[in-house]
Design a protein around this nucleic acid. Structure first.
Length: 269
DNA sequence: CATTGTCCCTGGAAGC
DNA sequence: TGCTTCCAGGGACAAT
């Protein structure tokens, strides 16, 4: 499941390979990811454009094009972007080709992934919250964002309009690091808990980026390789296993219909 | 506005 | 072995 560290890893790999290249061809096997834009219009607007730079906001990849359009891609659950794959991919939805014959293949088993071609990126990512690895994201800002909220902290961490880029896996990992129970009402966190959570979020994400992201589910790097961040998971997807700190069995509960994993002894309400 | 629940989507795992 | 059911979860959207 691509979250901030995975998307950042993909962004870096694609930047190194694609910046400066010009879109030459487009094969659309499935128009669902285009979100209503016709394949003809998508092709007309994209072909001939050069990639000036590639950025990331939250879990969105932003391709800045020479005509100042933006190609915005969200991989959602199972999307992947592969550079020049050697074998045909089973769930290929779109293939981009470039002026140097290189190819970028968009695959997506579950078809949740989307790609938008827009003039103004704020139409797509305008409501995103603060970037958790930016200077702007301070303990004071986190405290302000959580103050007065009654929703469980886990739910707020997943709200992309509050903080951009944290998904289910890293929310669980950060809460374990900060020793906070996932159902704690956000506004009830103490100052020291907020400080611990702030540090946990930054450390968890930074470390995961260094590991190239977590290859649970279908996540792959553009070269087809896998990330290793999931080997460091202490609670995420670890239901039933012993807590690495106290050996208590990791519990799984549902919060807003999402699985939350936590240690009932290390993360008390 | 804040919060919560439902839907989308499909393959793989689990259960019988 | 083969069928059915459950499960994964980001984000749009509707409802409260």
């Amino acid at each position: 499941m691509p979250e901030l560290p995975e998307v950042e890893t993909i962004k870096r790999a694609l930047s190194a390979s694609l910046v400066g290249k010009q879109f030459r061809g487009l094969i659309i096997y499935d128009h669902k990811p285009l979100c209503g834009i016709s394949p003809e219009e998508f092709r007309r607007r994209l072909i001939g454009q050069r990639i000036k730079s590639i950025g990331r906001s939250g879990k969105y990849l932003l391709f800045n094009l020479s005509n100042d359009d933006r190609l915005i891609i969200h991989l959602r659950m199972t999307g992947a972007l592969l550079l020049n794959p050697k074998k045909p991919e089973r769930f290929t939805r779109v293939i981009f080709s470039f002026n140097d014959n290189s190819r970028l293949v968009f695959t997506d088993v579950r078809r949740f992934g989307v790609m938008r071609l827009v003039k103004s990126e704020s139409d797509v990512i305008g409501d995103l919250g603060v970037e958790p690895l930016s200077k702007e994201f301070t303990p004071e800002l986190l405290a302000k964002l959580l103050a007065g909220r009654r929703a469980p902290i886990k739910a707020v961490l997943l709200d992309q309009t509050v903080i951009a880029g944290i998904g289910n896996m890293y929310a669980d990992e950060a809460l374990f690091s900060a020793k906070i129970h996932p159902t704690t009402p956000s506004g009830k966190l103490s100052l020291s808990q907020v400080n611990a959570l702030h540090q946990a979020i930054r450390r968890t994400l930074t470390k995961a980026i260094r590991s190239g992201g977590a290859s649970v589910s279908t996540y792959r790097l553009p070269d087809g390789g896998i990330g290793t961040a999931h080997f460091d998971f202490r609670v995420a997807h670890c239901g039933g296993r012993p807590c690495p700190k106290c050996k208590t069995e990791i519990q799984r509960i549902k919060i807003r219909n999402r699985s939350s994993y936590y240690c009932p002894k290390c993360q008390k309400l």
